[in-house]
Computed example of a mutant assay.
Amino acid sequence: MNSTRRLDSLSEAFLKNFITFAIAIIINFINGTFVYTYFKSHVFQRDPRYVLYIHLVINDMIMLTTSVALQIITYTIPLKLAPCCILLLILATTNKNSPLNLAGMALERYIAVCKPLHHVQVCTVQRTYSFITLIWAVSLMPSLTDIIFLVATQPLSIFSRNVICYNSNIFSTKFHKTHREIVQGLLLCFVFLTVLITYLNVLWAARAASGLNQASARNARNTILLHGVQLLICMSTFVSPFINIMLVTAWPEKRTSILFTTYLVTGILPRLLSPLIYGIRDKTFSSHIRMLFCSSCYRAEKRVNPMGPQRRSKKVSH
């Protein structure tokens, strides 16, 4: 998509940036609601399950903000290679964080159902933060490798040049392409197998359990299945280049529109769907959201009408 931005007319460029910016503001506002609810309720901060969930939300907010900022910058001002590499580093790292975080959430549910006696010892908040740190380290290494290889093979003067900043344009050597394909393949296979194995184990546990344990196992099974759906949403970012090739080959005259549409569908909207589906489905989280915002609305009404509806009605009756 980025390589065709220079071909857009002024009105097309403005419309695309306005649409993307508006959608990003709405998505970050909704996701920010989940973050606000998490930090206002201490019960969530003591549960590893919600710690992983809110990390997923914050990670997607960072990814979305970086992606939209990169798009607007590319349209509006020249960008040097050095800051471009920093933005691409953040974007690539957060993009890899999402599926790894989903794998961690699936493992936490597996331990809670299949190893309940060990859950309290294994799944602590401190260990969850350590796991999140490990996720960032694992996701950061491939992107750092790309930049190190670029520095080693190119003169340092290229970092002061203006570039069109997108991943396949900056890291375009055969090494970068092969490295990218291997990392993405290993990452998705690892996460897919993790989600599949944990789902099957929880499924068997649900069949073997009875009473309340069976209900708990079924809830965990549905949660892990939801993680599988979230994984498919995350995978849409990785398969978008192949979708673009197929669609542009079929309709070459609509290339810019196709690339922009796939960018919205695979790069922007998943940042809302994944956290929103999980946040609304979780009864505890959704109830806390309602409590917080209903109480906020009540306090706002009290400030506007401190007498209250009953006293006001008595005054009218006189």
Rank of each mutant, 00 (worst) to 15 (best):
S3C: 10
T4H: 08
K16R: 12
I23D: 01
I23W: 06
I25Q: 04
I26E: 06
I27R: 08
Y36P: 00
Y38C: 02
K40H: 05
Q45W: 01
Q45T: 11
R46Q: 14
R46G: 13
V51S: 10
I54W: 04
H55N: 15
L56E: 11
L56P: 09
D60W: 07
T66Q: 10
S67C: 06
I72F: 14
I72A: 15
T74I: 06
I77Y: 13
I77K: 12
K80P: 00
L81V: 11
P83N: 14
T93Y: 02
N95W: 05
N97G: 01
N101S: 14
L107I: 10
E108N: 12
E108F: 04
K115A: 05
H119L: 00
Q121E: 08
R127K: 11
F131A: 14
T133I: 13
L134M: 12
A137D: 03
D146G: 04
D146K: 12
V151P: 02
L156Y: 15
R161A: 14
C165Y: 01
N167I: 10
S168M: 07
T173S: 15
K174M: 08
F175P: 09
H176E: 11
R180T: 14
I182M: 04
V183A: 02
V183Y: 06
V183S: 01
G185L: 12
L186N: 10
F192Q: 02
I197Y: 12
N201P: 01
V202S: 05
R207L: 10
N213Q: 13
N213C: 03
S216G: 02
A217Q: 01
N219A: 10
H227V: 05
H227T: 08
V229T: 04
L232G: 15
C234R: 02
S236C: 04
S236R: 03
T237S: 13
F238D: 12
N244E: 10
I245L: 11
A250C: 07
P252D: 05
I258Y: 06
T261L: 15
T261C: 09
Y263E: 11
I268E: 07
P270Q: 09
L276M: 09
L276Y: 12
I277F: 13
Y278I: 14
G279I: 02
I280H: 02
D282N: 13
D282W: 08
K283C: 03
F293Y: 15
F293E: 06
S295V: 04
R303S: 00
N305I: 09
M307G: 00
P309L: 10
P309Q: 09
R312Q: 09
V316Y: 09
